[in-house]
Design a protein around this nucleic acid. Sequence first.
DNA 1: AGCGGCATGTAAGCTGTTACATGATTCT
DNA 2: AGAATCATGTAACAGCTTACATGCCGCT
Lengths: 180, 180
Amino acid sequence: MLSDLEAAALGVIWKQGPCTAYAVRKHFRESPSSHWSASAGAIYPLIHRLVERGYLASADLPRGRRPSASLQVTKSGRAAFRAWIGPPVSAHVASQTFDALRTRALFLGVLTPQRRERWLADAENALREHRRRIEESHAAGGADEDEWFELAYRSSIRETRARLAWIREARELSAARDRG
Amino acid sequence: MLSDLEAAALGVIWKQGPCTAYAVRKHFRESPSSHWSASAGAIYPLIHRLVERGYLASADLPRGRRPSASLQVTKSGRAAFRAWIGPPVSAHVASQTFDALRTRALFLGVLTPQRRERWLADAENALREHRRRIEESHAAGGADEDEWFELAYRSSIRETRARLAWIREARELSAARDRG
DNA sequence: AGCGGCATGTAAGCTGTTACATGATTCT
DNA sequence: AGAATCATGTAACAGCTTACATGCCGCT
């Protein structure tokens, strides 16, 4: 059974074709629709695990004394990946989301009205900036992006817009509360 | 420095007033806008940590030989909580989201058109069901909910609607691809 | 030749999961 | 009284983060 991060790594290598572990890291780091930090301490051991399990084939690259390897998804790796993505979407997968702003917004009641307004204004600005960055890299990615990667961008953009609309609603609620 | 889960636990105890560790667990388990499983192995050690650090005061409850405690946020606990939620929303907090469907959708390209259609149809159904459940418990919660907890519901609802609209877009894309 | 950034890793520590254990309470 | 459920935990394990180490490469 693959974890989401393992599956994503397999998927990236499958789509990109043979590449190194570092390329996978870079992919995660630069993708705005992925939430993984992809620290070295996460990626390298993960890759080794997948090689050990036979999901990745590792071919040595000549690079001095320090080993480097070109990774490629094996047949059984593809099977494992299909077993991860394939089954009918479960309720668990459908409901599994996270939003750090929402987590904090739950407790806005503990702030003074002033600080709350300030927080909400900050949040709105940060979200706007976030949206700008996504739309920018979406536009920049352009033609070389995979069709489904492009779809993930749209997901992020829709999500960000929904969060912005929600923050505006929250600001109105907050303002109304202070008036009333 | 508090983790998000620690802060959420503190926040819940602060809002609810003195309560037991189990009440916190129950809160997480039943809230549709929280993504924490709140397993026993996570919550009890976490509570003990917060007591040790002086963020929670623990008063023994008379309950046979097995100890139970009523928890209350201390002054320094409130300070720690404010330090968590208070600072201007960082880019990191604004951009930190997760969507298990999006993670999978990135790799729909590896499925056959048939399986892809099937996956998307499943996803739409699962999302619809998810939306139904949220809206239901939102309606049921009603008057006794905290104003800001209610706002978190709205966040979840908006999020789910955005995801549904996105899945529909994906289905159209997928269908168009197969025709063309 | 040295310096900064690329690339591959490892070690320690923390946090969460699963699975189990066990006491207390309530229901029948 | 016995069964189911509530409630509090713990032990083993897995995975991620941070911080560090180290080799390689390109530029000046």
